[in-house]
Amino acid sequence: MAERLAADDPSFRYANLAVRGKLLDQIVTEQVPLAVEMAPDLVSLCAGGNDLLRPGSNPDVMAKRLARAVRDLRAGGADVLLFTGVDPRDTPLMRRLRGRFAIFYLHVRSIADLYGCRLVDQWSMQGLRDWRAWSADRLHMNEDGHRLVAARVLDVLGVPFEDWRMDWPERAVDPRARRREDAQWLREHLVPWVARRLRGVSSGDGITPKRPDLEAFIGYGGAKSAPPAARG
């Protein structure tokens, strides 16, 4: 997304304060004030998913916290992008929590309406229901998944890019291979995730933001990037 926006505006500056695994309170306390200080034109704020996975999380209380953060960002003049999460109905680990997710993301829609924010609705993105859009841990998107979301964000912003409405090519699914994949996921990802929750630690502990300052966008090759070529 940043590459595409930078291609249209030589004065474009970009910061990325996000750190994986952070809870809503941590984002509001540690990241939102920094974003307000930068006085940006546009802020993307995607938060709450990690909280919803934890026992006892209250989507109503979370929504009030999020609303205060959005109010602070809007008071500084920033345009704000909010995100719903992906529908968890296809994920065995999260399917039982679907009602909790739905309540919170309905709140997110309401907050977007109340404060005049733009909304990126990942819940409706059918392309994200395919495991080919996700990394091996089944909780974080891979490069293809992130590209789909970037396309949706750019569509919401009215910036030409590729279509986020996509259908994955059909492929045969071997039930035995799927069972092996499930067992591997259980062993390599679910068990360590549960162990971290029990220890009160996060995969983001000790990790700092990738781009903590609002600076000219430099692509991953070390120079200002041209927009990625659209895929057919």
Rank of each mutant, 00 (worst) to 15 (best):
N58A: 12
M94L: 15
V61P: 02
I207V: 15
P227F: 00
I218M: 04
L17P: 00
R71H: 12
G200W: 07
M125L: 15
L81F: 00
R98T: 12
A223I: 12
Y115V: 12
L106V: 12
A75Y: 03
V86K: 04
D174H: 00
R138M: 10
P40A: 02
R176Q: 14
V120I: 15
W131A: 03
A151N: 10
R98L: 09
Q31E: 14
R20E: 11
A69S: 14
T84Q: 07
D144Q: 14
G48I: 10
G204V: 01
A78F: 01
V36E: 07
M1L: 14
V149C: 06
G219R: 08
G77I: 05
F101S: 03
W131I: 02
V153G: 05
I27W: 02
L5V: 02
N142Q: 03
E188A: 09
G85Q: 08
P92R: 08
T84L: 13
D113Y: 07
M38V: 03
S135G: 15
G221Q: 13
D60Q: 07
I207P: 04
R196H: 07
R129A: 12
L119E: 00
R138N: 04
K64A: 14
V173K: 10
L119V: 05
A102I: 03
L53E: 13
G127I: 04
M125V: 13
R65F: 03
W193A: 14
D205N: 10
H140S: 10
A15I: 00
L97A: 15
C46I: 09
K64V: 15
E215G: 01
P88K: 07
G127N: 02
E215W: 00
D213A: 13
A177Q: 13
A75P: 06
L45P: 07
D163C: 11
E30L: 14
